[in-house]
Nucleic acid binder design. Sequence first.
DNA 1: CTCTCCCT
Length: 845
Amino acid sequence: MTLPIHQARAAIVDALAKHASVIIEAPTGSGKSTCVPSFLLDGGLAGHGIIRILQPRRLAARMLARRVAALRGGVLGDEVGYQVRFDNRTSARTRICFETDGISLRRITQSDPALRDTAILVFDEFHERHLFGDLMLGLATQLQSGLRPDLKLVVMSATLNTRELEAYLPGAKVIRAEGRTYPVEIQHIPPNAAFEKAPLWEQAAKMLPTALRHAPDGDVLIFMPGAYEINRTLQTLAHTPAASGRLLLPLHGSLPPAQQDQAAGTGAGSRRIIVSTNIAETSLTIEGVTAIIDSGLVRQAGYDPHRGINTLLTGKISQASAAQRTGRAGRTAPGIAIRLWTERDHQKRALHETPELLRIDLCETALQLKLAGIDDIAGFPWITPPQPQHIENAMVTLTLLGAIDRHGSITPQGRRMAAFPLHPRIARMLIAGDGKDCIPTLCLIAALLQEQSILLNSVDERIRERRRQLAGPEAASDLTLLINAWHFVRERQYTREAGDEIGVQLQAARTVEALQRQLLQIAESQGLYGYEKQPDMDCVYKAVLTAFPDRLAVRIAGDRCSLSGGRRGSTHPSSIVSRQHTLLVAADVQETTVGKNAVDVILSLITAVREEWIDDGFGASLHMRREVGLDTVQAGRVVAEEQTCFGDLVIRSRRRTEVTPDEAAYVLAREVVAGRLSIKAWDASVEEWIARINLVATHCPETGISAIGDEERAAMMEQMIHGAMGSKDVKHANVQPVLSQWLSPLQTATVETMAPNRIRIENGRTPRIQYNDPSGPFIAMRVQELYDTNTLPKLCNGAVRLKAQILAPNQRPVQITDDLKRFWSESYLQIRKDLRGRYPKHEWR
DNA sequence: CTCTCCCT
């Protein structure tokens, strides 16, 4: 059979012979992943070197290698091989190697920085923009312009952001090829407020009959953002007539493999409705789907570089992602895709998904680049550069972990950490266990933290009870449950019964064993020692704290905790750590959507911490603080606390009752300024006097009088209330003595002159001046009282114009002006006309 | 309303 890509064969070989890089844009089904490597090898482009095809997924690397080996009539591992984690099927004869991008990245940073044995790097599925692929492409372009001008690059993609990539690879030849799929009709919902307000699962159920009318003979695939929405959809469909007679199946990552296979395989006769997360968008292909109902939403892990916090939020998918989901309905026959968002919404959506490197914590990336000799992280040839703040956060964390020094260079400890295929925090934890007789347990914890959770999350009460028994009473760490659960199933040879008894995902538990073994080997090669029979769990937990010192938390009440940075959060409901522990460290802190529009910070994988551990490891970061404030319980008394702080987080406070009169005055005065307490004698006339002082201070700086703000008010009040020890002593404080002595006699006289209480105007009257108005000082007078006055005096040695608020006979203001002459000649005429009729007995000139 | 998905 000939695939569409064959028509491009000559063009591809020719292009790569002449250019250092080639971009191949071809949709799914074009056969590019299986064919292009052979074109290149048979075209003689690889010389004696290896063609490495980078894949984002292990499964794809294995399957493609099998298929290509078979197509070329060879044995897997001979000419054609693959390498993924824990599984290497290559030999000295291998010329075409399918490998995961993580394997390639480790090779280039750890063992072979010049990729000496490699002739061509082929990046498959590049449009998915995974972190490792992006990094590899950057490093490969650096090699091309340095050690390896002969290295050739092929970047393949279904829907490419081609312009961005062409700009990134100047001189690259672009080749486009056709795909081969069946047409899929796309229907957006029309704008309809009532429909859009209904829950997602009801929307999906309502559109089911339309989907089935267009594609009655295939399976239906419904995309939902997460497990919760999937379960609600299944419940709704169970009562939907159109769905009757069809098999209803959930599909998401935390289902046991057997259930995933049931959804991913062919239906074997009965027609199905599969409700899935994003797992069905690229990772799993479901045969026989002809109708898609797409919620258009995705739950996505992220990282907020400004707050430095991990997130897991529900968001809208991009146009490219929607197209990919749509394509899932056209693999075997023409199909239909119903999108639960409007055409207008669609046009406003992002063209592509955000590249992973902009969405995740960059600690591990930065450390790997430092190891590769790239000290200036911002200067790396990023395809899409991360924000400076984002890089800065990684530097702060790496410094905290001792992986880089204050010049930003990698330390010997940093090199040791980078040898582990782990987040630098977790690598730091292993190193903290050096010589402490707990390395195997720490390697196990590292594997458990790094991989998907081995514990199933929706389990019944019986299993929860078994888990509580397994963790023991008054558990001090959620990690203990993970460790014990893992040992439980491993000692029983990962039998189904053992897994069911405590709700463990056996596949994940097996992966943990393989990873632990790999980590132990690396630990040995890095010279870590300490191989226990019975681990000292205190040492283990201290090592955990070393990895996450900035994720220390203090329980306030129940599930609520305070974290550093003034944040609040809740412990995860699955936590088994006893409530009596108040000082905690969380290995995972994530901001998560809760409810329709709210978010909360969730702390999981919690370990109770003893204060002396902080002293041991981070004594330098601890400091004492004396905090004085109003007692919340015994209301009104000023009390003091002695606080032990770690950064800005108060980890312990001791109540102290002795408060000095100075401290009490300080606290109470600020309560008054904030408006929560009042001094009876501090009335409007006091504020008026302050306004006069401030006017002079602003406009006559030569007098040396300074303005009175909140701090100065508080300072005055401290003197007035000195000796008061509680809020009830404040009210009758004596104001005048302090107020009158605030300024020297000369300054007081200056204020009286520059900003007098009363002032004589042209017609001989002496009105009072009102100072306490944001627009400036003014006199308020009835029209008649202003007759024979054309100019107003000035204040502050002529620097401030006095205003007149002109009142009607009933004292209502009609105008405010600082130009009386103009008033008489202009607006007065109209005002007189209006008022004369109403007040005929008054004098009107 | 307990947890999207990959990878060294």
